[in-house]
Computed example of a mutant assay.
Amino acid sequence: MKLIVTSVLITCILCAKGQSQGGLILISDQFSFAEGPAVDSKGNIYFTDQPNNKIWKYTSEGKLDVFLESAGRSNGLYIDKDDHIIACADEKNELWRIAPSGNVEVLLDQYNGRKFNGPNDVWISPAGGCYFTDPHYQREYWTRKGKEIEEEALYLFQGGILTQVDPDFIKPNGIVGTADGRLLYVADIRADKTYVYDIDEKGNLVNKKLFCNQGSDGMTIDQKGNVYLTGKGVTIYNVQGQKIHHIDVPANWTANVCFGGKEKEYLFITASEKIFKIYPDWL
Rank of each mutant, 00 (worst) to 15 (best):
C88Y: 11
C212G: 07
F67I: 07
G72D: 13
T230A: 05
Q240S: 12
I221Q: 07
Q30Y: 09
I25Q: 11
Y131L: 02
C12M: 14
F157Y: 14
A87K: 06
G261Y: 04
L64E: 01
K2A: 13
A271R: 00
I275K: 00
V239H: 00
G218A: 09
L183Y: 04
K277W: 05
Y228E: 03
I149L: 14
N112E: 15
V249G: 00
E152A: 09
S28C: 13
D168I: 03
I189P: 07
I199H: 08
L183H: 06
L184H: 09
E105T: 15
K81M: 01
G233C: 06
S74G: 08
Q223W: 05
F169M: 11
E152V: 03
L229S: 02
Y195H: 06
N103C: 06
G113P: 06
N53M: 06
G159D: 10
S70F: 09
G76P: 04
K147I: 12
A153C: 02
G160S: 13
T143A: 15
K274D: 01
Y78K: 08
G118Y: 05
F116R: 07
P135Y: 06
R114V: 10
S74T: 12
L107F: 11
Y185H: 09
D29A: 10
V227W: 03
N252W: 12
G128W: 09
K171P: 02
P126A: 10
G62K: 12
T48V: 05
L95K: 07
E201K: 15
K208M: 05
N75R: 06
G159H: 02
G36W: 03
D134H: 04
V104D: 06
N120W: 13
L162E: 02
G43W: 04
K92V: 04
F169P: 01
G118N: 03
I10N: 05
G225D: 00
S32E: 15
E273W: 01
L14M: 14
I221P: 01
T178Y: 01
K232N: 13
D180E: 09
L77H: 08
N120Y: 10
A271L: 04
A99F: 08
Q21R: 12
Y46L: 10
K232G: 03
E148P: 09
I275W: 02
R139Q: 12
I27W: 11
G72F: 14
K202E: 13
L9S: 11
W56S: 06
P280R: 08
Q158C: 11
N112R: 14
Y137K: 14
Q164V: 04
G62D: 12
E148Y: 05
N226K: 00
V249Q: 00
I25Y: 02
G218R: 02
K57Q: 13
S216V: 14
